Lab assay of single mutants.
Amino acid sequence: TGEEYIAVGDSTAQQVGDLTFKKGEILLVIEKKPDGWWIAKDAKGNEGLVPRTYLEPYS
């Protein structure tokens, strides 16, 4: 379980453990880390770190 967020920009994984996503994708945020990198899952079930500045709450 988690909260749904929509990507407001494209982000390409810079290192192992990062999640690549495109603008408009809905991501499920699993954990919000205080350093600004959140753990999220995409629609295909891929999981990784995403920069919170690229996400907005999805409603």
Rank of each mutant, 00 (worst) to 15 (best):
G2H: 11
E47H: 09
G45P: 00
V50Q: 00
P51Q: 14
L28C: 10
E4Y: 15
Y58H: 10
E3G: 07
G17Q: 06
E4Q: 14
I39M: 09
K33D: 06
G24E: 02
G36S: 04
T1F: 13
G48W: 04
T1V: 13
Q14E: 12
W37M: 14
P51M: 13
V29S: 00
K44V: 08
I30S: 04
W38V: 05
W38C: 03
D18R: 14
L55Q: 00
I39H: 08
E31K: 10
Y58N: 07
T12M: 12
R52E: 14
Q15D: 11
Y58W: 11
E25I: 02
S59T: 13
A40V: 13
T53Y: 13
I26W: 05
E31P: 00
F21G: 00
G2I: 09
D18S: 14
G2D: 07
P51C: 15
K41S: 06
Y54A: 14
Y58L: 13
L49K: 13
K41I: 14
G24L: 03
Q14K: 12
I6K: 06
L28E: 05
Y58F: 12
A40R: 00
G24P: 00
A43T: 10
R52Q: 13
V29T: 00
G36A: 04
T1E: 13
T53R: 12
A7P: 01
W37E: 06
D42K: 01
V29D: 01
V29A: 02
P57Y: 06
K33E: 04
W37I: 13
A13P: 10
G9D: 12
G36L: 04
A40I: 07
E3N: 08
E3L: 09
L55I: 08
G36Y: 03
S59Y: 13
K33Y: 10
Y5R: 01
K32F: 06
Q14Y: 10
L19K: 01
D35I: 02
L28G: 02
I6T: 04
E56S: 07
A13H: 10
G45R: 02
N46L: 07
R52P: 15
A13W: 12
D10H: 06
S11R: 15
K32P: 03
G9N: 14
E56G: 03
D35F: 04
G45I: 00
F21L: 04
Y5C: 04
G24I: 02
L28V: 10
D18Q: 15
T53M: 12
R52D: 11
D35A: 03
D10I: 03
D42G: 03
Q15G: 14
G2Y: 14
G2P: 12
P57L: 08
I26V: 09
D42L: 02
E56L: 08
V50N: 01
T53K: 13
K33M: 09
Y54V: 13
P51L: 14
N46R: 08
K22P: 02
P34H: 10
D10R: 03
A40W: 02
G36Q: 04
P51H: 15
G36T: 03
L28W: 12
A7I: 03
G36V: 02
I6R: 09
K41N: 04
Y54D: 08
G9T: 15
K23P: 03
P57A: 08
S59C: 14
L27P: 00
A43P: 07
R52L: 09
K32R: 07
W37N: 11
G9E: 15
V29F: 00
F21V: 07
K32D: 02
K32C: 04
D42A: 03
L27K: 00
E3V: 09
K41G: 02
Q15K: 15
I30D: 01
R52A: 15
V50W: 02
